[in-house]
Design a binder for these strands. Structure first.
Lengths: 144, 144
DNA sequence: GCTACGAAATCGTATAGTCCGATATCGTGA
DNA sequence: TCACGATATCGGACTATACGATTTCGTAGC
């Protein structure tokens, strides 16, 4: 089985991108009431545990550079979802935290996420899910 | 145990986005000589089997709308990587095909993809990979 | 204490990605 | 022939992304 040139679509990494796109669209569609972009949703989801994070930490979690986050955080701040404070002990760092309104939105997002996960992955065998996690963890660490 | 608010990062879908981002960056970094963006790489990779595709088909494979692809294909055409022809039997459709130069680039991309996959996934148990595939296929089909 | 160096975030700027609505072209069935 | 749906592009608007430069700050050396 020479694999290449068959259905053209055997590459796991291409499948990865398709899956990401599909789930992202489903999520934003479901959360259309919040009027947030995918990046904003991602940022809020990563803050949903209530712990503050610096811009760099958020960038690492979301996979974007701090430069990119600046404008995203600008909008989230303007709309009252987050605050930017100074971190005790290092006044260079900016501590991004949820406002009460932001926490509400973040909770909605986490719920929609959990919901989508249940619907999509609910019927799958646990071994598959476990393998999925294993591979994702490895992929997230590929050196660039 | 209300689960919510724990390490913030248990969500498979957030992990999915991180993995996508990391692999995408690794890939574009490795292919920097080709001077292509992520979208262009994606389009070429999906054409690498040599079969022509319509814009709609490409969009479905790459997870983008036809509108989005227009400008991507514009650049690829201007740079001699693809041609846009009419499809026999339906002159509304545009048949996107690789030029010889585009085929070369596409082959390079497929190689880099396979390489990255080997390096990242080589040491993992086959069951994990299988589970990964299973879950990806399901996720790619979530209704939006 | 002062100074030099490195780190964190932002700003300015440029380019690409993305999509919505509108339009042009074409196939198809009545 | 004509109305309707499908296919792709265009126009315009906004977001995403990043590189380089800048500002502000912490820290190690002296």
């Amino acid at each position: 089985m020479t694999s290449i040139s068959s259905p053209a679509e055997d590459s796991p990494l291409l499948a990865l991108q398709r899956a990401t796109h599909a789930t992202l669209q489903a999520l934003t569609a479901e959360l259309v009431d919040l009027d947030l972009t995918a990046s904003e949703i991602n940022a809020l989801a990563n803050l949903a545990d209530g712990k503050g994070r610096t811009v760099s930490q958020l960038g690492a979690a979301a996979g974007t550079r701090p430069t990119t986050l600046t404008s995203v955080l600008d909008r989230l701040e303007r709309r009252g979802h987050i605050t930017r404070g100074t971190r005790a002990g290092d006044r260079r760092s900016v501590l991004v935290e949820l406002t009460p309104a932001g926490r509400l939105a973040a909770d909605t997002i986490r719920e929609a996420l959990a919901d989508l996960e249940r619907r999509a992955l609910g019927g799958l065998p646990p071994e598959a899910i476990a393998g999925f996690h294993t591979v994702l963890d490895v992929l997230a660490k590929v050196p660039s």
